[in-house]
Design a protein around this nucleic acid. Structure first.
Lengths: 169, 169
DNA sequence: GGGATCGTTCGTGAAGCACCAACTATTTAT
DNA sequence: ATAAATAGTTGGTGCTTCACGAACGATCCC
């Protein structure tokens, strides 16, 4: 029965009844379930879920200043500092002063950081199996791609032109 | 574009490069972004993101006891009480004693609850547009379906047989 | 009757996070 | 050159969420 649903991904013409299909709550729900499991899995690696989010964002679009990072992660700049301090202390990221604007700290993933991130992701396979158990591998990949696009999409938007359109609906 | 990926439901053969495509961090990231917006949007309705999660879960699989609900939401039972108190005070849910086991409080969405949930979801359209702006309507519907299946799937799993496998990697 | 279970209430403590204030270094505008 | 604005940092404060423990009444099961 799921097989049929697994085929989704090609509908585009239909007006759809999707008017009320808001993903927000589900996103919240699944993120929570995932985070709870991630914490225990990540602890041995000296990481917390929030660190992983930052590393993931940095891998996707590194070389940003901390301000931009604060915008992307939607965290207060003062809290970003602590977060990056953690990661820099573990040599997972580097803060280099930007040559063009020496006030800026350009944040980038180190080799160690990329490696650790991969390790962490591997270690999270079990957690993901529990939370996304109802989805087969292909569907999980689809999910990953959608989330990834959604994330980088808004990220790019906010990195350069800092959230111009706020009231577009 | 996703067509190809979606079709190779025969795992086990292809090694794939998807080994490190863990959605956890992205899920976390997007959920946060969504939640931040949701809070302000939901406030006029007297709801919080967490309430919406509970209502959504109840709509998907109502008629559960609070213990089961605690398992699904992975919250402490004592905190569930307060959450349900809020919702019951607003007449969005009902607690009825189960006839078979009179200790049990069977929780169910009221009509008002379903209506309010719909209103909230409608009100969240703007927030979703901001967060999922990079996805077209069809993709958002796909995302919704995947999240929905993942959510209900694990819910069923965890309600009866409580999460056995922990260290599978 | 005794033990277990469901729901409830209260309290405690840790963690996340937004916010303010002050400071340095640097850029930009006048 | 001086003033104003910006990026980052540090420290502190307070609110909210949340997990956890203790105790209780009601109910089920043996």
């Amino acid at each position: 029965m799921f097989r049929g649903v697994g085929r989704l991904g090609h509908m585009s013409a239909q007006p759809l009844d999707s008017s009320e299909h808001r993903s927000g709550a589900l996103l919240d729900h699944l993120a929570r379930r995932m985070r709870l499991r991630s914490e225990s899995v990540l602890a041995p690696l000296g990481l917390r879920p929030r660190h992983l989010v930052a590393l993931t964002v940095l891998r996707a679009g590194g070389g940003t200043g901390q301000q931009a990072l604060a915008t992307i992660l939607e965290m207060d700049s003062t809290n970003i500092v602590g977060l990056l301090n953690d990661l820099e202390a573990k040599q997972l990221i580097e803060r280099r002063r930007s040559p063009e604007d020496r006030r800026r700290h350009v944040v980038e993933l180190t080799e160690d950081g990329a490696k650790r991130l991969s390790e962490a992701e591997c270690a999270l396979a079990g957690a993901e199996d529990e939370v996304l158990g109802a989805l087969d591998p292909a569907e999980r990949e689809t999910l990953y791609k959608l989330l990834s696009r959604a994330s980088s999409g808004t990220a790019v938007n906010c990195t350069e032109a800092i959230c111009v359109a706020d009231d577009t609906c």
